[in-house]
């Protein structure tokens, strides 16, 4: 097997979803531009080009409001599953393992192995930081994209204000507008539903070969098993 083919095969999950992401984003861009021009035509305004749409606040807020909720979902899932468990779910760890677990179980401190990441073997603040790096990354990305969503949403809101012959508002005033919280909560609720559904359905249903499922023959009472 050539080097390239092996690389593609061994990274097919990230490459596959990266490609699907780009195709979906392109689809959103084309459909969003078409919708914006339909709306502008109905209001007697000139159509915008695809480039103008891609640099518009309307496109930015549509992208950012979805990104922030996805990163919130993963940040909460990573943090919450340290403490919250679901009997029988492969999405949960064993019921007795609630909490941050021992150094031995987590292979840190004197239990670090030769192939452990360098910051695990380094000890001190590096190990402390690395021990929480996944949750911190998703939490940080959530805060960044939520902030970007608020700025883009503010700009898009002010465009609509001017189109309807009303005063633009400040960013702080926008944070108190129903538009911002409607965009935020409508995305959050769907993410919470998806996580909760996965945690529960995976107790009783199986997907042969998927690590997101228990082995097909596993008991409904088996918790934390993946197949």
């Amino acid at each position: 097997m050539s080097g390239v083919r092996r690389f593609v095969r061994e990274n097919s999950l990230s490459l596959g979803f990266g490609l699907l992401f780009l195709l979906s984003l392109a689809g959103q861009a084309l459909a969003g531009a078409a919708q914006m021009n339909e709306d502008r035509q109905a209001e007697g305004l000139e159509p915008v080009s695809l480039v103008q749409y891609l640099t518009s606040s309307s496109f930015a807020v549509d992208v950012m409001e979805n990104w922030q909720s996805e990163y919130l979902q993963f940040a909460l899932y990573v943090f919450a599953t340290v403490w919250l468990v679901q009997r029988g779910s492969p999405e949960s760890k064993e019921l007795h393992a609630v909490g941050t677990e021992s150094d031995e179980e987590q292979r840190v401190g004197s239990h670090a192995r030769e192939d452990s990441p360098p910051w695990v073997r380094a000890g001190g603040w590096r190990t402390t930081l690395f021990s929480r790096s996944l949750g911190l990354l998703f939490g940080g990305l959530f805060l960044l994209t939520w902030a970007a969503s608020s700025v883009a949403g503010w700009a898009a809101y002010n465009v609509e204000q001017l189109q309807s012959h009303a005063d633009p508002v400040s960013w702080v005033a926008y944070l108190g507008e129903a538009d911002f919280w409607n965009r935020t909560f409508q995305n959050w609720q769907s993410e919470m539903l998806a996580v909760g559904s996965m945690a529960v359905f995976a107790v009783y249903l199986r997907q042969r070969g998927s690590p997101e499922s228990k082995p097909v023959g596993a008991s409904h009472h088996d918790t934390g098993a993946t197949g």
Binding site: L45, E46, V48, Q52, S56, S57, S58, A155, A156, N158, V159, Q161, L162, Q163, D167, P168
Partner: peptide
């Protein structure tokens, strides 16, 4: 004056 996107006041 303020400009927001393709609109201005």
């Amino acid at each position: 004056a303020q400009v927001w996107g393709q609109e201005a006041q």
